[in-house]
Design a protein around this nucleic acid. Structure first.
Lengths: 343, 343
DNA sequence: TTGAAAGCGCTAACAT
DNA sequence: ATGTTAGCGCTTTCAA
């Protein structure tokens, strides 16, 4: 295996000079730099990352911790896009991405230990809300660079989030505007902060419209439970005229249940979701939904972290991105199909 | 920051002994080992990965290279599940996963250089077929552990793949059995080996049935192109009675086009896909598809790599996994809905 | 069973 | 502008 020592010998210079060239440190003659660069290129030399890491206390890796929600937390329309965005932003800056999907609550700590205490990364992007308080406190204390995706309640941290309250509020207003009074909401687990937030927007809008937001149901992200839950909601008398499911992981189960009950959308029931999925566009009827700017979340969170890694102070500690209502056919909207409304 | 030197001093032993305990190396007194372990636990010590990597020439990281196909190669039902599986298998063995989504053909090399030549990983899982020949040759030459997901044509490597030929063959037979004679196939880019393979199965089955497999069309994984392509196929006279799309990335576009043309499935047209997607189950009608054992691909490829990393020789160099036909409603099957047929 | 010591390949401070 | 050198925190050989 080839090292900077070899390069140094071939270029008739010291290791230090080679190191300077590799790191772009000023203070090397133009002529010398060119000579060394040429040799590096010829030999296709790449410095040993462990050695660099040890000496410079810098790994050029960032870590990404993805929360455990359902069976495949990654297998939806959210994390894959964010991950893609992050790896691309990282690649642009010569960083690599170490990924860790926490498999359970307990696992968060093991992921954290190995990645962080083992100094495998220079900074951390933490997805989701259920990351341990103790760990966050430790990150803060050690001034380790980290950014959250999703608001984080306990400690004032850097984070990027979406305005879930406004999103559900305007969707609810949309439904009310269409004449719905009995609107049922199916939501994910009660203890998720983002779910609570989304529900708040629903309640606000309902109260403001003088309607009672009493049809709220929770269920885990588990297919059978979702199907059962949906059916139970729709078997009530009188049946709600609209169903608003506020998490993308509910989509397939909800639509399956509606199908199985033989209800027609939107004639018998208006249906809409928080999170827009690709297949909503090919569904019959096409599905109205709230779209999050997923790519933007990914790039924003990357930019925040890399600003931190450069030792700079980001202009904003927190970035709240807006959602967008994509009006399609599933609510029987009278608006022209495909029209959008910012919120 | 705390190091093994600190631990050694506290335990009144040498660094070497602490190192032995950390690595589970035999030759340490039972009493001593316990004492050291206790201190490590109390201080929540985790050895510095860079130092370990440098000294032991082992990083405890594996790399995953995901190919560039569409806009978000990751955002489908395949890679996220495989990635989840790999990270879990890795975590079980105290390995971390470094991910690299090659953004383009050229990018493969930069990902490769940084990850591999920088010695950031001990082994590599390479997804897709378009990885550079030169790089593979180098991996082989240096006896660097690597495993492919998907057959790899040029060099005899370890790989895990799915029997695409058999999958499309039996789906085609299924369609023929249902009475279809004019079956159109929409496929991904012509130069992908997996696509070629799938087409082979189609041709085989058609020939065997005495039918002509002339309705084969290719298109890139780009929404508009897919919609246009599908419409063009379905505007031919006489219109094919069945449409078989052989890549999951085509699904939304194909269904959208069919919808827009006002064709009824399965009355006017039978539709089916290579790759089963979650939403096929809630679509109206539910969609018949070929299912790949995605989880199993992920776990098998992990096991292969970790066997290699342990210095052992895997029993099989290659694993070919079977696909499964999930019969639902979209082909107007007379078979009971939800029945399965192995292939 | 344990300790001592020599490196692993690099960076960075200090000399020149 | 360049060389010299002392580590970075660990593993591993060799001695004891």
């Amino acid at each position: 295996m080839i090292t900077i020592k070899d390069i140094a010998e071939m270029a008739q210079v010291s290791k230090g000079t080679v190191s300077r060239v590799i790191n772009g440190t000023p203070g090397v003659g133009d002529e010398t730099r060119k000579r060394i660069l040429k040799i590096i290129k010829e030999l296709d030399f790449e410095p040993n990352a462990s050695a660099q890491g040890l000496a410079a206390k810098r790994t050029n890796n960032i870590g990404l911790i993805i929360p455990h929600t359902g069976k495949y937390s990654l297998a939806n329309n959210y994390w894959p896009i964010i991950l893609t965005e992050i790896t691309q932003q990282a690649a642009l800056r010569d960083y690599n991405v170490l990924i860790s999907t926490a498999r359970s609550e307990d696992d968060v700590n093991s992921a954290y230990k190995s990645i962080l205490k083992g100094r495998r990364v220079d900074g951390l992007i933490i997805g989701g809300y259920q990351f341990g308080e103790k760990q966050v406190a430790e990150l803060m204390l050690k001034e380790f660079p980290y950014v959250f995706i999703g608001r984080n309640s306990y400690i004032s941290s850097y984070y990027v989030d979406v305005n879930g309250v406004a999103g559900t509020r305007s969707m609810t207003e949309h439904l009310v505007h269409l004449g719905h009074k009995e609107i049922a909401v199916l939501a994910g687990p009660e203890n998720f902060i983002n779910i609570q937030e989304r529900l708040q927007g629903f309640k606000d809008a309902m109260n403001q419209a003088g309607l009672r937001p009493h049809h709220i149901y929770h269920c885990k992200y588990h297919m059978e439970e979702i199907v059962k839950g949906t059916k139970r909601i729709l078997q009530q008398k009188p049946r709600p005229t609209a169903l608003f499911a506020v998490a993308e992981d509910l989509a397939v189960g909800v639509l399956k249940a509606v199908n199985e009950m033989g209800l027609r959308i939107p004639e018998d029931l208006a249906v809409t979701f928080f999170d827009d999925l690709p297949f909503f566009e090919c569904f019959h009827p096409t599905i109205t939904a709230i779209r999050q700017p997923v790519e933007e979340i990914g790039s924003t969170v990357s930019n925040l972290l890399f600003t931190l890694l450069e030792g700079k102070t980001p202009v904003h500690r927190n970035v709240i991105l807006p959602t967008e209502i994509i009006v399609r056919e599933s609510c029987g909207s009278t608006l022209p199909q495909g029209s959008k409304a910012k919120s």
